[in-house]
């Protein structure tokens, strides 16, 4: 989120305000918050996401059971008072596993999206700012990576280097920079042509400094929007990998690998399939609503 400090960095001379007016007016953040607060769906999504993340984060404190506590006397029980969401093939409490699983799924989504968005923003900014051959090479590389279907590529990478949650988050992140790179490049191309950048260059500032201090802060809005939507994508990709049995390995639960386990008992114990999938749906839906709300708040003209 563009805080005051990020939008009006202390080192930006006052004269930068005028030519920049169109896309980042002074106190733009206040208008931003007003817009976001008025969007009830976005606020609701933020509350849902915050609540779910919090509950999952403190899973060890509040979960009623151990996530790998096997109870062979209570196998595949439908939801009851003792087991609110029922139990699985080994009599493990589904609610507990959902909480622990959510912790990993959400964390992987956040880490992968931060990495992908960071990487993409950097590449997009460099490509857009320098132009010429640098841009040509970087954007053609982006096209190449866009053309290779992501999920099969991830499957191949998981085959070469199988690993835990950390390496899966890094791999997904390393493959989700293309969208943000394209968006940021487009924005930077626009900003590069503005007068205050020319002024900064005339003052003799280095390119790195101009990109970091004067270009990127003005692209924060689109970056945050792209990053938010990437979180949703990353959670879906992680759960798809886990569903195929290539993601985080059991006994560590994630929503994806719980669904993989549930597949075979779908007819007799449907709750095992319904709850984890529903959790993924709710989180991704909330993330996307939030991203959409952020987009409207960053640029009110984009809404219809």
């Amino acid at each position: 989120m563009p805080s005051r400090a990020a939008v009006d960095g202390p080192d930006v001379p006052a004269w930068t305000d005028a030519p920049r007016g169109g896309h980042a007016p002074p106190r733009g953040d206040r208008r931003f918050w007003r817009h976001l607060r008025r969007n009830r769906i976005a606020v609701g999504s933020l509350v849902v996401l915050g609540g779910l993340s919090l509950v999952c984060a403190v899973a060890p404190l509040i979960a009623p059971y151990d996530f790998d506590a096997i109870d062979l006397a209570a196998i595949r029980e439908p939801p009851t008072a003792e087991h609110w969401l029922g139990t699985d093939d080994l009599g493990r409490d589904l609610l507990t596993r959902m909480l622990y699983g959510g912790r990993i799924s959400i964390l992987i989504g956040l880490v992968a999206a931060s990495l992908g968005t960071g990487l993409g923003s950097l590449l997009g900014a460099v490509a857009g700012y320098y132009g010429g051959r640098v841009e040509e090479v970087l954007m053609r590389f982006t096209d190449v990576m866009y053309s290779i279907p992501t999920l099969p590529l991830l499957i191949v990478l998981a085959a070469i280097a199988p690993g835990g949650a950390g390496s899966i988050a890094l791999t997904i992140g390393a493959l989700s920079w293309m969208g943000p790179a394209r968006i940021v490049r487009g924005e930077v191309l626009r900003i590069r042509a503005l007068e205050y950048i020319e002024a900064a260059r005339a003052l003799g500032l280095g390119s790195g400094r101009i990109i970091a201090r004067h270009v990127l802060p003005n692209v924060v809005g689109p970056i945050v929007v792209a990053g938010t939507l990437t979180v949703g994508e990353a959670i879906i990709v992680e759960s798809s990998l886990s569903f195929l049995g290539l993601g985080v390995q059991p006994p560590t639960p994630t929503w994806g690998n719980m669904l993989m386990d549930a597949q075979s008992t779908m007819a007799t114990a449907p709750w095992l399939s319904i709850f984890p999938g529903f959790a993924i749906l709710v989180v991704v839906l909330a993330v996307n609503f939030l991203g959409d709300g952020l987009r409207d708040a960053v640029d009110p003209r984009s809404g219809s």
Binding site: I236, S239, S240, F243, M266, A267, S273, G277, L285, N288
Partner: peptide, 23 residues
Amino acid sequence: SFLGIAMPVFWFGLILQMVFAVW
């Protein structure tokens, strides 16, 4: 549209399988 984009493909598949094929 929001629902369709957020829906995990495999879960949607499992649910349809459960409802239209099994039940």
